[in-house]
């Protein structure tokens, strides 16, 4: 059984920068479009252009490069695997190297470089969003972007409320799980030895209290909220107001500029 003792706070890195001060809604839309642009870039020139924009974005955000690179960690092994697959199985183009059954072709190297570079760009640009915007801002932004769909019954406000509740309780539950695990261990429970059946049964006393408490907690919280007059999202005012400002207009112009450039550079 392995826990991490520290409670992580998320990826957001507070800084004073153009990207940090933009409205979360415009950043969300920008990243969405930029991901489409990355897939549209099918020539070397277009690809170098989106790569340059991504690097410029990282520079403008004033976030230490090491934090940005950390965003690649979850996909590292799959990038390596993709490169290996492309290099050793692609049999097109001139033969560059051969030894027994191993053959490396020119097209294989090219494709490997292109595909891995595209995955890296995709993940870097996506991580810029979560590095420059706090989870709370993003929750507000999502609620606002989804609210036009309320007409069709989409629960925009409710979803944002539930996200905030989860954010609030994740650290609490992490701590609680740790406590339960220690309490069970002090009673002789072992999560890392004994037969398989024994270990499976060892999980039950760990999980059941978590679920039981969540039922009780939900009931209490619902009562508390209704006692304070919570009636859903209708006519509710906000403590944090989102504002579409000059910077967001600029970001919009930049998006259009990138779209036009990528379109022109495409084959």
């Amino acid at each position: 059984m392995s826990f991490l003792n520290s409670i992580p706070i998320g990826q957001f890195v507070p800084r004073q920068s153009f990207l940090h001060q933009c409205d979360p809604r415009s950043k969300l839309l920008f990243v969405l479009f930029f991901i489409i642009f990355i897939f549209m870039a099918n020539t070397l020139a277009a690809f170098l252009f989106v790569a340059a924009v991504t690097l410029l974005g990282i520079a403008v955000s004033r976030i230490p490069v090491i934090y940005v690179l950390r965003g690649l960690k979850p996909a590292l092994w799959i990038i390596v695997l993709t490169v290996i697959l492309q290099v050793f199985t692609n049999k097109e183009g001139a033969l560059l190297f051969s030894w027994k059954f191993i053959e490396i072709h020119e097209k294989g190297l090219q494709d490997a470089a292109f595909v891995s570079a595209r995955i890296i760009l995709l993940m870097l640009s996506a991580s810029l969003l979560t590095l420059t915007t706090s989870p709370i801002q993003l929750t507000d932004g999502l609620e606002s972007l989804f609210s036009p769909f309320r007409k069709f019954g989409f629960p925009a406000h409710e979803l944002a409320l539930m996200m905030s509740i989860s954010l609030r309780f994740i650290p609490t539950l992490l701590e609680e799980t740790d406590k339960i695990a220690k309490a069970q261990m002090s009673r002789g429970a072992s999560f890392s030895s004994g037969s398989i059946i024994k270990r499976i049964n060892g999980i039950l006393p760990l999980i059941v209290p978590l679920f039981v408490q969540s039922f009780r907690r939900a009931e209490e919280l619902a009562f508390a909220m209704e006692a304070r007059g919570y009636r859903g999202g209708e006519g509710r005012t906000k403590y944090r107001q989102l504002r579409f400002g000059k910077r967001d207009a600029m970001l919009l112009l930049i998006t259009i500029g990138i779209a036009v450039t990528v379109w022109l550079l495409r084959a």
């Binding site: 690649l72 993940m123 996506a126 991580s127 969003l129 996200m163 954010l167």
Partner: peptide, 25 residues
């Protein structure tokens, strides 16, 4: 998935953020 997408480290190994969702896996 949404909470993970907005950058709270809820995916396995405390991974998080939009890059996990748009990445290959």
């Amino acid at each position: 998935i949404l909470v993970g997408a907005i950058g709270v480290p809820v995916f396995a190994k405390f991974n998080a953020g939009l890059p996990v969702l748009v990445g290959p896996t």
